[in-house]
Design a protein around this nucleic acid. Structure first.
Length: 262
DNA sequence: ATGACGATTCAAAATCGA
């Protein structure tokens, strides 16, 4: 059995205490982090090594973005895609020689700014371009691959607290959903969140800091784990650690964990 | 406990997130 977690941590330096608590409570074999918000030399390598996660791949950047994958199972970093072509650190890919060469792609897809119109908002265009470049990449995948991370898109009506109200809000617009659907079709990715927690069941992974205190459950499913079809058939359990949203100094995202019979 | 986001950075106010 192999347990793999993805979590947008919103600053690894600030949240190492809750990461440690999560690792001790859930004991995943591999943890993929997004928004580490630090440079590689600032990453807490030693803390992870002491927790048993000795294999570490970090693609960092000063202040913003940044992703890292840490593992108890031996792995090798083998790719860092720049799907925006602007130097931002939003991807790291690793492979596991002892798991039949399983490939794990950890990605932080751009948020896309406020206005859902590429003519008026450069960032929205960059988000769509990022997805299109990923689609070209996905068409060529030839080994079992797990693609995880913060996709910043809630594709299904039931992936947001109010579908109609969010149709014009970046993260749930029809254009973003169509573009994400093309990426999904390019490799026949299986959405593990919905394999294990079928629509329309509530399955949120993110709540805004601004409204969470109101207690109205205004969540969105922005984080995803997608698997190649053959790999997806080996996933046996999947869960969301929603309680972490109430831990001390929480991230605005919660961890997703999938267990594979490998 | 009578307000109400939280992170980053040339360290105060600006910018970003989604």
């Amino acid at each position: 059995m192999v347990k793999i977690t993805t979590w947008n941590i919103n600053s690894i330096r600030l949240r190492m205490p809750i990461v440690e608590r999560y690792l001790k409570e859930h004991a995943p074999d591999v943890l993929c982090l997004q928004e580490i918000k630090c440079q590689e030399q600032q990453f807490p390598y030693e803390a992870f090594r002491e927790l048993g996660y000795e294999h570490i791949a970090v693609h960092g950047q000063k202040g913003y973005h940044g992703v890292a994958t840490v593992s108890r199972v031996p792995m090798q970093e083998f790719s860092r895609h720049d799907w925006q072509d602007n130097g931002e650190a939003r991807h790291v890919g690793v492979e596991f020689p002892s798991l039949d060469g399983l490939v794990l792609e950890n990605v932080y897809i751009p948020a896309g700014g406020d206005i859902p119109d590429r003519e008026k908002n450069l960032k929205f265009g960059q988000k769509l371009d990022f997805l299109e470049r990923m689609t070209r990449w996905a068409e060529k995948i030839d080994r079992p691959t797990l693609l995880v991370g913060d996709f910043n898109i809630a594709p299904l009506e039931c992936d947001v607290y109010d579908h109609k109200a969010l149709l014009k809000v970046v993260s749930h617009t029809p254009l973003e959903v169509e573009t994400l659907d093309l990426l999904q079709g390019a490799h026949d990715w299986v959405d593990l969140g919905r394999k294990h927690i079928p629509a329309p069941e509530r399955n949120y992974s993110w709540w805004s800091y601004r409204t969470y205190w109101q207690g109205k459950d205004r969540g969105r499913r922005l984080d995803h784990m997608w698997a190649s079809p053959d790999l997806a058939a080996q996933s046996v359990a999947h869960s969301i650690a929603e309680d972490t949203r109430d831990w001390e100094k929480p991230s605005d995202h919660v961890p997703l964990m999938t267990e594979f019979d490998l």
